[in-house]
Design a protein around this nucleic acid. Structure first.
Lengths: 195, 195
DNA sequence: CGCGCGATTGAGTAATTTCAAATCTAGTGG
DNA sequence: CCACTAGATTTGAAATTACTCAATCGCGCG
């Protein structure tokens, strides 16, 4: 499966596109290859595109201005979207970094092209509504998990729900995503390999 | 300002509606008054409507099946929307309660009417896309706050950003929303009235 | 006026962090 | 292809943050 098929399949799970629409859509996209550690969004710069991950792995995080601590806020692997939501929708300076954790192939849709797409094929308005709704739903679940569960329960949840994350991201990234320290995650894991 | 003006203003901040469109829109809404402690969404029942709050105060929360603990996940006062996002968008059984904390006036848009509205006035697809995007953006910020800040910092943030919440909701609801116990919030607050 | 819910207080405890050091691992240059 | 090194993980002890439990207090509503 090539890059374009990948994103078209993603979209087609929510709206039906004919051949012409697919062509119009894909002509608005930019195919990009990025290398490990490359950053596609940085604080103080406007996040200009939505990014769809074809293959590879990316993380979104902030760096605390006080203590320099890195806080991971989002992860993305194959078939996920990732960008600084707030920066993108308001076209205002970002607060996140979005960075490749591995060499990755991504597809980007710029803010301008997104607007053009709405005029040409209003159906995309629906797709991105559904996409945003699913994002909000997922964030609400994650929020709930963080508020009401222990670190160990959250880790189990992640391991069951997104086992690929554990393969693609180093432990310290997973730990930060869960809101705990890498040392503590290590202790959680090792307190169980014994039993 | 009457109930309808209130919600029309809310929508008009994002899309422009003419008189006819406003009439079509409002004919799809249901105006409801609910009393304190009344529940409009319950676990195991499908969340059938989006709820817009004209006046009053509502909270969304889950009850942990193990320990019976109540975890507040969302709050809404004047001009906010509140519903079980996951249940509503998938039209599947809810996991939340949504309950009035005070006598409230709300406006509800049912899932069926929402779909009809999209056919009649496609512009609403845009409105709800923007709405979902803003919800996702807000949740991402809250997520970040919960992951990287102390209870005290989160409380200050809430007090600055949404001072009305402190007036409308009892302390124990605010505490749960912040992810802390009511006792601990009390200690935070009182450790400062002294200085 | 009293009952019940919500807020406060304190003591003891559990979860998680911080700091520091040791160990392991994977990538790079020679 | 090996040795080196920077990055990543593990381990332990001490410190912090926030929780639980239990008792008390305050106050608004019936």
């Amino acid at each position: 499966m090539n890059e374009i098929d990948s994103i078209v399949n993603n979209i087609s799970r929510f709206v039906t596109l004919d051949r012409v629409e697919i062509d119009v859509f894909t002509s608005h996209l930019k195919n990009v290859r990025i290398k490990k550690r490359q950053q596609i969004v940085q604080p103080d710069f406007v996040c200009k595109s939505r990014t769809y991950v074809v293959s590879g792995a990316l993380k979104a995080y902030i760096v605390d201005p006080n203590d320099g601590q890195e806080q991971v806020i989002g992860l993305a692997i194959d078939d996920w979207w990732i960008f600084d939501f707030t920066s993108y929708i308001n076209q205002e300076p970002a607060t996140f970094f979005v960075e490749a954790v591995d060499d990755s192939t991504i597809i980007q849709l710029s803010f301008e092209n997104e607007q053009k797409l709405y005029d040409l094929i209003p159906k995309f308005e629906r797709f991105f509504r559904l996409h945003a709704q699913r994002t909000a739903s997922g964030l609400q679940k994650r929020m709930l998990s963080n508020l009401s569960k222990t670190a160990e329960e959250r880790f189990d949840e992640l391991a069951n729900r997104y086992p690929k994350f554990l393969l693609k991201f180093p432990q310290y990234v997973i730990a930060s995503y869960l809101g705990i320290t890498t040392q503590f995650l290590s202790k959680i894991r090792n307190s169980r390999t014994k039993s």
